[in-house]
């Protein structure tokens, strides 16, 4: 699955641009299957992308248009999908979006994710890992739209990083400075 190391993300959106471009030949963040959010007040930036959650909230699809691929990715069949919006509403982190007649969810580029290659910061990794539970986030984000959910989720993730930043208080650092 795709994992994000927030501490390394600069908010450049190269991942997003690459995702849209390689899937559609066009540039438009709306066409990307991951969405970069910038939290200007706290310095946190990061892409929000399907984390293959334990609960698989999105799989509520009443038309059975969604299935799981061999890498655990969610696949939407455009021929079966009626654009009812159930999956978009269900994902607690806003990782599913519907735009101009199509459902956008990370498809892992069939096992060779372009976002990982585009990220020169190594902030996006493609690796095995434990699938998170989004039960709590699901409860906390009820009534929010996907934009608000991505914002909520990223802010939540960012809290930990900000605590790390605060912990490295400059006052306590050694005065032994690099004199290059």
């Amino acid at each position: 699955m795709i994992r994000v190391d927030l501490s390394r993300c600069t908010g450049c959106r190269r991942c997003e641009a690459a995702c849209a471009f390689f899937h559609t030949g066009r540039i438009n963040p709306e066409l990307a299957r991951l969405k970069v959010v910038h939290l200007y007040e706290t310095g946190i930036d990061g892409p929000v992308v399907c984390q293959q959650c334990e609960e698989r909230f999105c799989m509520v699809c009443p038309e059975n248009a969604l299935s799981l691929g061999s890498n655990g990715e969610v696949i939407c069949s455009p021929t079966v999908c009626t654009l009812c919006g159930a999956c978009e509403k269900a994902c607690p982190i806003g990782a599913v979006t519907q735009f101009q007649g199509f459902v956008y969810i990370c498809d892992l580029c069939g096992g060779d994710p372009k976002c990982v290659k585009a990220c020169t910061e190594k902030a996006i990794l493609f690796e095995e890992g434990e699938r998170p539970s989004f039960e709590n986030i699901h409860k906390a984000t009820r009534g929010m739209n996907p934009q608000e959910r991505r914002h909520f989720y990223l802010s939540r993730l960012g809290q930990k990083l900000r605590e790390e930043w605060a912990a490295r208080s400059p006052a306590e650092e050694s005065q032994d400075l690099d004199k290059t």
């Binding site: 501490s7 390394r8 993300c9 600069t10 908010g11 450049c12 959106r13 190269r14 641009a17 310095g43 930036d45 020169t120 910061e121 930043w165 490295r168 400059p170 650092e173 400075l177 690099d178 290059t180």
Partner: peptide
């Protein structure tokens, strides 16, 4: 800039689609 980076910088930032990330 060196002292700033050592004491206060917490991460890099970037403009849209930049691969230098100099901010």
């Amino acid at each position: 800039g060196q002292t700033l980076a050592e004491r206060y910088k917490v991460k890099n930032k970037a403009c849209y689609n930049c691969n230098l990330h100099c901010s």
